[in-house]
Amino acid sequence: MGGAFITLLKRDLTLAMRRRSDWLNPLVFFVIVVTLFPIGIGPDGSLLSEIAPGVIWVAALLATLLGLDGLFRDDFDDGSIEQLLLSPQPLSVLVLAKVLTHWLVAGLPLVLLSPLLALLLQLKLQAIPALLASLVLGTLTLSLIGAIGAALTVGLRRGGVLLPLLVLPLFIPVLIFGSSCVAAAAGGFAIGAQLSLLGGLFFLALALAPLAVAASLRISAES
């Protein structure tokens, strides 16, 4: 079981490394969206530092969304989804490998880049550990929830337009706890509650999402 998981993880990471645009584009998108805010609102430092947690979180959420459509689409187009579905290994475990790849390729670089954007938006330095921690837990959860939407829409020609409609409402709790975690840290408050809530969401998504993704993939592959 572990063998197939590792094989799939290795294959998808290799593929991602050979096509840099897959992970580079969402990252650039993330940076551009964040820079749009000071331009749109004005360079007022105190205002920017106040909205920074929300802006970074919304941008991270949108950037995660960008890579989601491709999560199963390539496999679907070239037929390797059939090999995935016909594997004797439990599909939900294989799905987890795909989601983990998505996070390593789209989520982790985002997390690593976020302190830089925090500086651009004049977020208080003391909030940066909270930003990193909340983004790690949050983007993992987003990848898991988003994979359900990706699996449901993969068989559709214009699934990419539908996907945000399906998953963005489900992203809202993560956005709420994530941005509030950063805002609390910037204000010098405790962030234990937010982090444990984010952790709770993550474990719930980890337990349920792979099953929903597996079922959705089997349905999408029928057509």
Binding site: L156, L166, I219, S220
Partner: peptide, 19 residues
């Protein structure tokens, strides 16, 4: 939106049910 964008009725029904 999901329901209406899948042509195959039985596929649409099951995908919508999961959602």
């Amino acid at each position: 939106a999901l329901r209406s964008s899948i042509d195959n009725k039985s596929t649409a029904a099951r995908a919508a049910a999961i959602l």
